[in-house]
Design a protein around this nucleic acid. Structure first.
Lengths: 221, 221
DNA sequence: TAATTCCGTACGGAAATCCGTAAATGAATA
DNA sequence: TATTCATTTACGGATTTCCGTACGGAATTA
């Protein structure tokens, strides 16, 4: 079993459960951090002490509060830790189940396991840890299912940019000027219109309003 | 201290933490349910056995899965339990912090305490339970702050209806016909237009698309 | 009963979108 | 240099939204 595990999770209740679970599994050293910045510090220190962690369990979203932080999300934390300790296995334990988000994570961060917080997530967590131990990858069933959504392969950063501006109340005419001033291309009104229209097809949205509502639901914006 | 507590919470990890916390506080009987329907059954049975629960700790949102359920949310559960046991104190333990949602709960369900799942929620939970015990009400600070948002007093069910349809891709023209067929009044195109326009003022939204994006963010739809 | 106000409806012009077609640009290939 | 093909832009008409004004009825008040 793993011997030294770092947990990055903001909710105290979930921390309690994770620690209890890991203790029951026989993990000897368990450290936890409620902020990504703290987690990175702990990882750095462990390397300095020549006793690095052999597993990172991390949440994805962290609540903002009074404290100003430099790492705002699990994604940022994982990138930062992989820079100082490239080979560390990472298990993501998250409520997230938006396929768009997960797709991005797999592609960019190559995490070893995804476990979706849910009714039976603790047993999945145990299985995931054992799988990683033997060099495998683990993805919660529901997440695995979400990855099959074919739609999201077609969506590019440009689309996200357009959708985000629409959601902020920018009209297409304004967007044309905005894109030109920021030197984003293509930027013609008709091209943006066409792009929005294509997105409506992809998402089977009846109106542009509907499209933005769906994008919000899917976690794209 | 409370002697018999019912927990309604779908995530297993949080259940583990809650049970551990209540045990440490000296609660003798703790039951938990991962589905609202199960929680209601347990409450019924406890009444039949002349040993009713003296506290309900409930989440608000429950993930849907393969199982078909009749009670889909904590709100519905609380209403159902209050019907069979009107005096039971209720503590809501939730990630929810949308002021609109909380407003509705306070107004309609008169829960005794809100605790927001977060970095220090377990200590808040303990305080909340003690406060309830002495007949008081408890609301997490951040939630209490959210309640001061003035905007949401002006929003009625009619507005939510309109916003929901817009988000589903119904045009205003279609909505006129829809409302007429469902006998919802007012239903003229111009009135609905006016209402949408008013909502844009209230939310300071630049476009209708913006309005729907904001409504999603605020948890209104 | 007349006047006022509130609420819902009706209408019309300006603006934005929707959507199809055609023209322009630009990169790759012969 | 020409040709082809895909990408991007331009344009225009139909539709929808946007927004101001005005009309009608119901409730309230004097």
């Amino acid at each position: 079993m793993f011997t030294k595990v770092l947990i990055a999770e903001d909710f105290d209740s979930i921390n309690i459960a994770l620690i209890q679970t890991l203790e029951n599994m026989g993990v000897k050293e368990i450290e936890h951090a409620k902020y990504c910045d703290d987690a990175l510090l702990k990882a750095k220190k462990a390397i300095q002490d020549k006793a690095p962690f052999d597993l990172l369990i991390s949440d994805l979203s962290f609540e903002t509060d009074y404290r100003t932080v430099s790492l705002k999300s699990g994604e940022e934390l994982i990138m930062a830790i992989r820079k100082i300790q490239p080979e560390i296995p990472v298990l993501v334990y998250t409520v997230e189940d938006k396929s768009f988000v997960i797709k991005t994570l797999i592609k960019d961060l190559k995490v070893n396991a995804f476990v979706h917080k849910g009714r039976n997530s603790i047993s999945q967590l145990k299985t995931a840890m054992e799988t990683i131990l033997f060099g495998g990858n683990f993805i919660s069933q529901n997440l695995a299912h979400a990855l099959k959504d074919t739609n999201f392969n077609e969506i590019e950063d440009y689309d996200v940019e357009v959708l985000t501006h629409l959601a902020k109340g920018v009209t297409i005419e304004e967007m044309e000027l905005l894109f030109k001033s920021k030197d984003i291309k293509p930027n013609s009104k008709s091209y943006i219109e066409k792009r929005v229209s294509k997105l409506k097809d992809v998402f089977k949205a009846k109106t542009t309003i509907h499209l933005i509502a769906l994008s919000k639901d899917l976690g794209i914006i």
